[in-house]
Amino acid sequence: MNPIAWFFLCSAILLEVGGTLSLWMAVKSNRLWYIAVAIGYLSSFAMFVGVLENHMPLGVAYGIWSAAGVAITAVCGKLLFKEPFTWVMGLGIVLVMLGVLLVEMGAGL
């Protein structure tokens, strides 16, 4: 796996998290944020194509993408939007991430 693939993957994750947080803003404050949602997700998918073109296996890429997205979104929800977050919920998020990684990476094993 080459470093360019990882660069694309990190970009895809951050753009997607940005899109998701914008969705929250669109719902809670101003509808103009829907534009940011569209830009975030479309550019995220474009980056993801870049990941696959640089020969990262689909399951690995998608697993890391989903799991990291879940974690970063949960942390941002707590920090930016002051959402309630207990250690039980944190445990649930960790389990979900683990499960996603297993499903996506377990295909070839």
Binding site: L21, G77, E83
Partner: peptide, 10 residues
Amino acid sequence: GIGVAYGIWG
């Protein structure tokens, strides 16, 4: 919450 909703959705 976005953290809960997005985690379960994904």
